[in-house]
Write a protein that binds this DNA or RNA. Structure first.
Lengths: 340, 340
DNA sequence: GTGAAAGCGCTAACAT
DNA sequence: ATGTTAGCGCTTTCAC
């Protein structure tokens, strides 16, 4: 058996209560005793049992991380990086992170993640868009929750998002500065708050430049913003506005790839004929293809902030709801070019 | 407070011991009682507290997953998929998975993952190549361990690997069947058992076809098998064997990309001039680039098997060491072509 | 400033 | 076939 609080107490000639108080750095304990006990803790290499602690404190020391399979399995490093961020920051807050991948079409009758039914988490981080029924069930639980990269309707949960409006603005402004005037927007799932905001940024940039917003240049759908949908959107867009559009801003990098693929299949060069800019910055060294201009989202940071926030929420009951918005950055690479 | 075993016992008019025995489906309990208690458990929506269980059983119900940052951060979905596999299977075995990302240059003086120091796991899964000092420390702990995709030296740990020799054979045999005779091997970190085995498969295929093994066609290093190293390896290879080589087998997909990049930069078309085949099958829909021929590794399956094995190891003390080898599959796509 | 003791929810040995 | 009870390692209240 591992060393317990009793071993420390015996060795230090104090009671286990004293050891416990030393561990929690209670002021009632004299410095002399504290030092003595701490030395022995170190010498014996003692670490408190999480089970015993959990039993008495009714806390688990675990945080649940919920994400849909859509998001996590679509081998995108986007949410993986966020997950790693929470993991890294969890050390600082002495939590462990438990992952649960739920169905993208989570229904009301579906069971909540096992760690919730098991009462094995003190709080939950929800990453990406999730079905409403999940949010409703979470709401009923009265457990601390932080949403990442998604703002659920009708709920006062805390959220960590990025400045999507600003990102959209930066991307489109970049195109405008390159001389583009006929700039299309390609997005999937326009119900998603992030995508809506990116479109809003698009509109703002055009407006500020005195360019009018042409709905014929805006192609959105209710689909997941994936590569294939980018391809289809480009097809619709370019078969109507033939020869007109000189640049495309897509709501994410995956769709940008689909657009580029379509353009190539139709003998349009990127960026020579058409400039394309994405969002997210997920494609770094994984491809030999053109390096995509995009808007960087601080993925690791998002995870870190989420962990900090859920931790604060758990420790401080009064803290109710907090919305954190992280900044984004324009990344100019090779898929955008000055209009000749 | 949540419902406890006492609530169930009271409601069922039995002792808490009986409830406990029913939960563990002990034969001493009559079916009548079992049914009665189970009904009430369901009705009250009771789940046993993991902390309380852990405290008495001296088990945590957690499995640690250790991986180097090299492997996990290099935004490859390879290990992410494996991790998800363990996560999926963990439900069946009623475990939770805790992740720990360690430094690639883990030294003897470095601290073990927090979940080990905290005694917060019952067993550990180690994914990918890890430094020897980590293995030595793990060995000293006498905790169940399963290695994934790596076979540590001097140790009797259980392992889950894939049939790398067979995979190498399949890849190279595929090239041979396409008429290629001057086939190069590109690999990084030849100390890695998997890479060595893939090279072995390469040699076997050549031998079987009566082709002789030419060391000038084999380019390995001690580096991490990444894209950039693939590029450099191709540079060395093709500047010496100019116009000679018609096909390349790389030890993984990342290096294949580097090789293809080099070839393009030097005006060699893939697959028209040179065929390239990789290993791992990690690049699916993330790129507009050429679809790589490769050898598929069942990533999710690996995770699942690892979880099953660690679970067996924990539950059955007698089970000591077991080596599982999973099959691989040739995936013919567009980067390999019949030699004209 | 420190100790004694109750009790968190459960398992398992022992009693009945 | 079921109940009683000790005890897992810790926190916390109350005494001293």
């Amino acid at each position: 058996m591992a060393v317990t609080i009793k071993d420390v107490a015996r060795e230090a000639n104090v009671s286990i209560a004293t050891v416990s108080l030393v561990i929690h750095n209670h002021r009632r304990i004299s410095n002399a005793t504290k030092n003595k006990v701490r030395d022995i803790i170190e010498r014996l290499n003692y670490t408190p049992s999480r089970s015993a602690r959990g039993l008495v404190s009714n806390k688990t020391g675990n945080i649940g991380f919920i994400i849909t399979n859509d998001h996590f399995l679509r081998n995108e490093p986007f949410y993986t990086q966020i997950f790693i961020g929470t993991e890294i920051e969890s050390k600082e807050n002495d939590f462990y992170v438990l992952l649960s991948i739920i169905e993208s079409d989570f229904k009301e009758r579906d069971a909540l993640p096992r760690f919730i039914l098991d009462r094995n988490v003190d709080g939950v981080i929800v990453a990406g868009k999730v079905p409403e029924p999940l949010t409703e069930k979470l709401l009923a639980l009265k457990i601390p929750v932080v949403y990442i990269d998604y703002i659920p309707k009708y709920s006062k949960f805390s959220t960590i998002t990025v400045d999507n409006v600003k990102g959209g603005y930066l991307a489109v402004n970049h195109l405008i500065e390159l001389g583009h005037k006929r700039i299309a927007f390609v997005g999937g799932d326009i119900e998603h708050p992030s995508i809506r905001d990116r479109l809003k940024g698009y509109a703002q940039a055009l407006e500020k430049a005195g360019l009018k917003i042409d709905n014929a240049l805006i192609e959105t759908s209710e689909e997941y913003p994936a590569r294939a949908n980018g391809y289809n959107a480009a097809k619709k867009l370019f078969s109507v506005n033939n020869g007109n559009i000189t640049a495309v801003f897509t709501c994410n990098d995956a769709m940008a790839l689909g657009v580029i693929q379509y353009l190539r299949d139709n003998n349009r060069r990127v960026p020579d004929d058409i400039s394309v800019i994405g969002f997210d910055d997920i494609l770094t060294e994984r491809t030999n293809d053109i390096q995509l201009s995009t808007v960087n989202v601080p993925k690791m940071e998002i995870g870190i902030e989420a962990m900090r926030l859920i931790s604060a929420l758990i420790k401080d009951e009064k803290l109710l709801s907090k919305k954190i918005i992280l900044p984004v950055e324009l990344v100019e690479r090779q898929s955008t070019k000055k209009l000749l």
